[in-house]
Design a protein around this nucleic acid. Structure first.
Lengths: 335, 335
DNA sequence: CTGTTAGCGCCTTCAC
DNA sequence: GTGAAGGCGCTAACAG
C-alpha cells in the first residue's frame, strides 16, 4: 500500500519534518539519519506524493496540451515530441482533445486549470478567443502552437505557412499546371488563411489568373476529402493538380484519385503540407511543404517552461514572443 | 486570479462548507442561497480545484497511459480513443512514453503513482515484470493493453494476434507464395510470439516447409525496416512476399521495394497487421489483419474504470479478466 | 438549514 | 540538529 512520510516518521520515532528533510538531503539533518531514512524509504517503496506537495509549493510539474485530434499524424507526432521534451524537463503531460469543437476547448481549459497544471500548450480552434480569455484571467502560462490570432497578441510558435504554400504552388506552376484545385481548411484558422495567401502569391507572381472557385473547404475528418475529390473528378473538369491544406487530406485525395483510375504523379499531381514522411515512412512519399515538428515542439515546450518560471519568480515579461519555424519544399513521387 | 471557496464564503459571510455544498446543489442548503452562490461563482469564474478535493476523496479522476511511442499511428490512434472514452467518463489522461525502454517504463509508473492517478493502462515493454510488481504493491488498478504476460496473470485486453497472422499468411499462401519473408518484432513481446505462431500454423496447414531463416527481427524505429529490406532485396533472393509484424513496418517495406524498382502488388506482395487504413486513409490501402482499436480502447477504459470503482467500494474481485478483440483479414492493393 | 472540526500529505516558518 | 504549528483547498463527520 501507500507509504507516506508519516509512516517513515513513525518507524524512526521522529517528526515528519525531519524525514522530509532527510529525504531531500538537507544538511541540517545528521548524515547518519539521512542515510538510514533514505535506505528505509527505498526498501518500503516510498513514492513522494507530488500532488500533496503541490498544494504547498503551487507547482504540479504538469502541463496540458489541448489539441484537435490525436488520430491525425500531424498532431500525434507533435504530441510525441512535446511529451518527450516536457518529460526531459520533469513535466508530465495531459492531452485533451477537442475535435475542433470550441465548447470542448473551453471545457478542456477548465479541466486543465482544475487539475492545477503549471501551463498549457494550446492548438486553438479559433472560432473565438474565449479560452485565451479564461487563461489570462487565471494567469495560467500558455503558448499557442501552430495557429495564432491576428487580432489578439499572445505567445505563439507557428510554421511559416504562407511560404510553404507558396513554394508548393510555385513548384506546381513551374511543372506547367495552371488550374490547381486547392482543398483548404476553414478560413478562420490562421494557417488556412496564410496557406491561401501563399497560393495566391504564387499565382500572382506567375501572372496566372486566380479562380475563387478552385478553393474548396474541407475538414480533416476521415473520408471527407475522399467525397469531395470523388464528386469533382468523376465529372469532367480542368484540374491537372491538387494542392491540399495538409498531408492527411492529400492522402485521401491520392487514394481516391487512384480508385478513380488516375495515375497520381503522371496524369495528375498532388501535393500537401506537413511532410509527414519525415517522421513516418509511408508507402509513397508525396510532395509536401516540410518543417520540423520536433523544432516546433521544442520551441513550444521551452517557451512555456520559461513562462512558468517567470511566473514563479514574479518577473513581468510583458512582451509576447513569436517563433516561426522555417519551411521548405520536399519533393516526392506525386508531382 | 484564482477564486476559491474561501473567497466566496467571505463574500457571503458564511462558511466554506456551506459554499461547497451550495455549489454541489446539496438540498440541505436553502434553494435561495444555492442559486445566489452558484450565480456568483459563475461570475467570478470559480473553477473547482480538483487536486485539493482529491486529497480528501482520494480520487483524482485521472488515469495514466504508459505506451511506447506516440509517433507510431497504431499507438496514437489507440491513444485517441482512450482519451475520448476516458474523457467521456470524466477522466483526464496522462500519456507517458517509454520508447520500449524498461527503465523508462518503471520511471513512468513512479511518475504516475506520484501524481496520484486512479488507474493505469499499461502497454508493457515486456523485458521484465517489475512495473507490474510496483503497481501491485501500491494497489493501483491497472490493465495491460495489446500485450500480456504468459507467466503472470493480470487483467488484459489484447487482439487475437495469432488468428490475424494466420489469416494473412494463409491468404499469401493461397495466392501462391511459398517463401514469405516475415519481419517480426522481438520475441519477448507477446504479440510477436503469437504472430509467429499464426505464421507457422498457416505453413503447417498448407504442408509447406517452414524456414527459420525467413524470420527477421526488426524494431519499429523509423527506417530500420528500410535497411533490412534494402540489404535483402538488393541481392538475389527467393521471396515473393513479405509479411510484417505491423503496418508501420509494412509501409517501410513497400516504400523501399518501390525504390528498388519493384512493383508491389504485382512483382511482390506485402501485408501487415493493424489495418491503419481503417482509421487513417493513406495513399494506398495495404492488405492487413484488421481489428478495431476503438473496441480495444473501449474495453480497456471500461475495465479499468470498473477496477477503480471496485477499489473504492472495497470489493475483492480477485479474478482477472481477459478480453480478446476479434481480428479479420482486410484485403488491399499490395497482395 | 448551517457551522465547526479535523485531516488528506507535504512543505515552510519559526522556535528550541 | 530537530520539532511543532500552520496552511495549501477541499470535503466528511459530527454538531447544533
Amino acid at each position: 500500500m501507500k507509504v507516506t512520510l508519516k509512516d517513515l516518521a513513525k518507524e524512526f520515532g521522529c517528526s515528519v519534518t525531519t524525514v522530509s528533510r532527510a529525504l531531500k538531503d538537507n544538511n541540517t539533518i545528521s548524515l547518519e539519519l539521512r542515510k538510514k531514512v533514505k535506505k528505509r524509504a527505498e526498501e518500503l517503496g516510498y513514492i513522494p506524493n507530488i500532488v500533496a506537495g503541490s498544494m504547498r509549493t503551487g507547482q504540479t510539474k504538469t502541463i496540458a496540451v489541448i489539441l484537435q485530434d490525436l488520430r491525425n499524424p500531424f498532431f500525434s507526432i507533435l504530441a510525441k515530441y512535446i511529451e518527450e521534451f516536457a518529460s526531459n524537463q520533469g513535466y508530465s503531460t495531459f492531452f485533451i482533445t477537442t475535435s475542433e469543437l470550441i465548447d470542448r476547448e473551453i471545457e478542456a481549459v477548465y479541466t486543465a486549470i482544475g487539475k492545477n497544471v503549471d501551463g498549457i500548450l494550446l492548438l486553438p480552434n479559433q472560432k473565438d478567443t474565449r479560452s485565451i480569455e479564461i487563461l489570462r484571467r487565471y494567469k495560467i502560462p500558455h503558448i499557442l502552437v501552430g495557429r495564432y490570432f491576428s487580432n489578439l497578441d499572445t505567445d505563439y510558435v507557428i510554421a511559416n505557412d504562407q511560404k510553404g504554400s507558396y513554394l508548393v504552388t510555385k513548384h506546381l506552376i513551374e511543372k506547367g499546371h495552371q488550374r490547381i484545385l486547392f482543398l483548404n481548411s476553414y478560413m478562420y484558422i490562421s494557417s488556412a488563411y496564410l496557406r491561401l495567401e501563399g497560393y495566391k502569391q504564387a499565382f500572382l507572381e506567375a501572372n496566372l489568373p486566380f479562380h475563387e472557385n478552385d478553393i474548396i473547404i474541407v475538414s480533416t475528418d476521415r473520408g471527407e476529402a475522399c467525397e469531395v475529390i470523388n464528386s469533382i473528378f468523376s465529372k469532367k473538369q480542368e484540374y491537372t493538380a491538387v494542392f491540399t491544406y495538409c498531408d492527411v487530406i492529400a492522402f485521401e485525395t491520392i487514394f481516391t484519385l487512384n480508385e478513380l483510375g488516375y495515375h497520381v504523379g503522371k496524369d495528375i499531381a498532388v501535393a500537401g503540407v506537413d511532410n509527414i514522411h519525415s517522421d513516418i515512412i509511408l508507402p509513397i512519399k508525396i510532395t509536401s511543404a516540410s518543417y520540423s515538428r520536433k523544432d516546433m515542439a521544442y520551441e513550444a515546450v521551452n517557451l512555456l517552461i520559461k513562462r512558468i518560471n517567470e511566473g514563479i519568480n514574479n518577473e513581468s515579461g510583458d512582451h509576447y514572443e513569436h517563433r516561426v519555424i522555417d519551411i521548405s519544399l520536399s519533393l516526392g513521387q506525386t508531382t
